[in-house]
Design a binder for these strands. Sequence first.
DNA 1: TCGTTGCGAAACTCAGACGTATCGAAATTA
DNA 2: TAATTTCGATACGTCTGAGTTTCGCAACGA
Lengths: 200, 200
Amino acid sequence: MTIQDSGTARPAGRPRSEKAEKAIIEATLDLIGEGMGVSELSIEAIASKAGVGKTTIYRRWSNKEDLVVDALSTLKAPLPPLTGTSVRDDLISLLEAMRQESGEVRSRCVMNIAMSEADRYPRLMERFVKRAIEPRRLAMRDVIERGIGSGELRPDLDVDMGMALISGAMLWHTKWGPAGDLAADLPERVVDAALAGMAP
Amino acid sequence: MTIQDSGTARPAGRPRSEKAEKAIIEATLDLIGEGMGVSELSIEAIASKAGVGKTTIYRRWSNKEDLVVDALSTLKAPLPPLTGTSVRDDLISLLEAMRQESGEVRSRCVMNIAMSEADRYPRLMERFVKRAIEPRRLAMRDVIERGIGSGELRPDLDVDMGMALISGAMLWHTKWGPAGDLAADLPERVVDAALAGMAP
DNA sequence: TCGTTGCGAAACTCAGACGTATCGAAATTA
DNA sequence: TAATTTCGATACGTCTGAGTTTCGCAACGA
């Protein structure tokens, strides 16, 4: 009985390098961040950028899609802490998180992939939605429903529609708004516009 | 002097087949509609699908991007007629046009390309925006500005933000709403939600 | 020390697509 | 009819990248 017998008995031989694994994932994300679509992504480019042999990649992932799925899964989606003081503040916090993410090359291109390659890579999409989209959607839904409960929002409000208005406005600015980073006051303006409505 | 001497004297030889040209464009759009990204699109697949020799393609377009640019330019963007009776009606008309387009495989996939491959194919994107996005944006802006003038909308309304709310909500539903076609009453609900606001 | 396994590098085979060239047939003008 | 140009088909050489194999070395357990 060895010292480290904790469940998985380590097999003989040189252990796999965690460093290489991290480098591979990083390289993959970097390349995606540089604007590569999944189909343009080449294992050779990843290996080269990661400073790693192709063997080392194929030993861990059997094909490109598996690797991309794992790489995207790595991107954590830390939700901002919500103060809960008001619906307006919480919504702004959520959108501010979106705004900051949209400034990171990586997140932006991951979003591109999520929006364009969903049909072609359904596994990838499914996993991405579960990790990145769903938590935010739930958080926003919570905020809105709490707002309805507290009387801050109209009791007959269509929650899904409210979410669509707010998230959609951010999405729209990201894609088709003025070039460059999103304005710092955008979250506030979006939330106020959605809350206020357009009719006089 | 021949009968048809209208400006361009026809050179000797067999004239280029318009039918082939149409078939090539159609095949290109079909393949894009089947979920192909620009980079996956192959000239050989287009030629095969169009029932045409590769020569016939290369004689007209010198590379893939030129062909795709031309193919996308072909997609007309007929704006719906606006009654002008009320802001609400006009906005619903505009969104209804968007909704119907989102149901066509072709338009949807073209949108995918527009949203994901903008960085990689700037020429393509530029042309697409000018033909497809810009006219709609202007139309919506007109409607909103007229509404402000007529008092139907708040005089202090941020026009761009209003457009972002409305278009964004449609965009959001297209991408992340319940699967399948957009609900028939979605345009109406989006417009009413945006006009009303969320606060009580 | 020895056996085992992972490492990066390089060579390899295989498939797909590019872009060009060539063919005989078809369509048109002169 | 003759000259010219396009047609679809096909073959070609080239390149890129997938995925495999081999190599000598490194890192680990026994």
